[in-house]
């Protein structure tokens, strides 16, 4: 067993620096690496390019990094829930690249899987495709989209072991598995770090080979963005 376990968050973040490109798992606030974000806020490194489907809300998730103006550029598909984000974008302080959600996922997966680029039909004929190579296959037009290049991927899983094997829960899975191994260093935080040998190899979502560092998160707030319930009849 190759040990990926690090002692603490400080060891997990070793090597992070200004002007790096980071990937963050999560959809809305679901499945975000809360502990890594909190630690990056404390370190106050600046000039970051962040690849993440969303940009958090004003006081949680990547919104915390935005609040301290640590982010130079966001690469996202949907950024609708964050006033500070909108303010920084409209004032020109923040560079924003909006890309289709499936393209975001596939640019991560391409980086993970060793493809330099992929062709997708998404965005053809729109401003997203401007300046990009296009090509026809079987009568349909596609846009060439390049694999991401990132320094760190910050991932949140439900359970993991010291070998780096991961299991995700519910829709908190989202982009997290696609980002594992898609950056130079993949840092995973888990709710439960379990002894090696206790996870069923048949049930592993991401094998440890895609993970460089793993640690158990201290606490998880797991904030719900849109609480919707029905009443019992």
């Amino acid at each position: 067993m190759i040990n990926k376990k690090v002692a603490n968050i400080s060891e997990a973040l070793q090597g992070v620096a200004d002007n790096m490109t980071f990937m963050f798992g999560g959809f809305g606030l679901s499945g975000i690496p809360e502990n890594a974000i909190a630690a990056l806020v404390k370190r106050n490194i600046k000039g970051l390019t962040c690849i993440s489907n969303n940009a958090g809300v004003d006081d949680f998730g990547l919104g915390l990094l935005l609040h301290q103006k640590q982010i130079k550029k966001m690469v996202s598909s949907y950024v609708g829930e964050n006033d500070e984000f909108e303010r920084q974008m409209l004032s020109g302080e923040l560079d924003v690249e909006l890309i289709p959600q499936g393209t975001l996922a596939e640019r991560c997966r391409a980086a993970q899987a060793g493809f330099p680029a992929i062709y997708t039909p998404a965005g053809y004929g729109t401003e997203v495709a401007e300046g990009k190579e296009t090509r026809e296959f079987d009568g349909k037009m596609y846009v060439l989209e390049h694999a991401f290049k990132a320094d760190f991927a910050f991932v949140k899983a439900w359970k993991g072991d010291a070998a780096g094997n991961l299991i995700f829960k519910g829709t908190a899975r989202n982009f997290n598995p696609n980002m594992c191994g898609a950056a130079k260093i993949t840092v995973v935080e888990v709710e439960e770090l379990v002894p090696v040998g206790t996870l069923d190899p048949n049930q592993i979502h991401i094998p440890g080979i895609f993970v460089q560092r793993i640690f158990q998160g201290e606490t998880y707030e797991k904030r719900i963005e849109q609480l919707t319930v029905r009443q019992k009849a």
Binding site: F27, G170, I224, E225, Q226, L227, T228, V229, R230, Q231
Partner: peptide, 19 residues
């Protein structure tokens, strides 16, 4: 459908971020 009150799970949402 949406969960009953008190049975919501932050790890189970839809694309509108609703539980």
């Amino acid at each position: 459908p949406f969960p009953f009150e008190g049975e919501e799970d932050a790890d189970i949402i839809n694309a509108g971020k609703q539980t």
